[in-house]
Amino acid sequence: MFPFCFEWKWDPDHIIFLGLLYLALTIIALGLTVAFIKTWIELPLEEKGEPPAQLAYRKRYSEY
């Protein structure tokens, strides 16, 4: 799984397989981070009594 595991070889098979895995994990992690950061930014917005329409989710998902 990591270059320091003794099965690891620097061959295309390992690079493609684990490269794609780490890419998927990175995307998931980044997605979660974005959600956390946005929540953090939007928290004071609601506190100040701004109209809810300014919140991102209200703009995009009016049906919810």
Binding site: A24, I27, I28, G31, L32, V34, A35, F36, K38, T39, E42, L43, E46, L55, A56, Y57, R60, Y61, Y64
Partner: peptide
């Protein structure tokens, strides 16, 4: 409030997760 906002923010970027999920 924190949970509500977090839930909605997750929902907003759901396309990213759905795309990754489709690939996986």
């Amino acid at each position: 409030k924190e949970l509500r906002l977090f839930g909605h923010n997750l929902h907003e970027i759901m396309a990213i997760f759905a795309g990754t999920g489709t690939f996986l």
